[in-house]
Amino acid sequence: MAKSKVVSVDAAMEKVHDGQTVLIPGFVNVGVPETLIKGMVAKDVKNVNVISNNTSVKGRGIGLLVHDRRIKHITCSHIGSNTETVEQVVAGELDVTFVPQGTLCERVRAGGAGIGGILTPTGLGTPIAEGKPVINVDGKDFLLEKPLHGDVALIHAWKADKMGNAVYHRTARNFNQIFATAADWVIVEAETIVEVGELDPDLIMTPGALVDMVVQAEKGE
C-alpha cells in the first residue's frame, strides 16, 4: 500500500525556511503554485533566493513574494509581466540575474539530472556570455552554463495522486515538470487529489517517487 504524502499547507511550510533557494515554476500566472506561495506569506518566510521564469503579475503568484519584499535574489528570464518587480529592480531593491529561458530550463534540468553543466549556443556574443567558458566542440562554439538546484521546489499540478504522481494541464505544465526534479524537497499542490492507482502510469509526468509532500490547491486558480 502506497503511503499517502498528503499534508496541510501549514505542515508543508515546515520545510520552507528563511534564506532557502526556492524553485517556483509558472509562466506569467499560469502553472504557478499560488497556494504554497500564500503559505510562505502566512509563515512570513523571508530572504529567499527564487529561481523562476518570471514573477507572475502584480498581486498574484510570485508577485505576492515580490510585493512583501521576501525575495533576496531572483534568477529568471523575464520580469516585464509584473510592474512591481520592475519598480523594485529600477530602485535597486531587488537583485536579479537574467538567464535565457531555454538556458534556465537546461540548467535546472542539469541540476536535477546530476550533470555538471550544459553547452549551449544561446547567448554567445551577448552580455550573457561574459565570464563564462566558451568550449569548442567539433568546430562549433558553445557556452558552458552551470547547473541550478534548489533547497525546495513548489510545484503546481492539475492532478496528483496521494503518493505524488503528478499530471500537469496544457501550458500550465511549463517549468513544473523540470523544477520537480531539482530540489532537495519537493512539494506538489494539486487542483485535484486522487487515489493511488487512478492515474494512467503512461500519462504521469512527474513520478511520485520524486515528490515529498502533496497539498490540496485552493479552488479557482
Binding site: S77, H78, I79, G80, Q101, T120, T126
Partner: peptide
C-alpha cells in the same frame, strides 16, 4: 533603462 529580461528571445534567435 531597466531591462525586462530576454525571456526566450536569445534561444529563438540562436536556434
Amino acid at each position: 533603462t531597466t531591462a525586462a529580461g530576454m525571456g526566450g528571445a536569445m534561444d529563438l534567435v540562436a536556434g
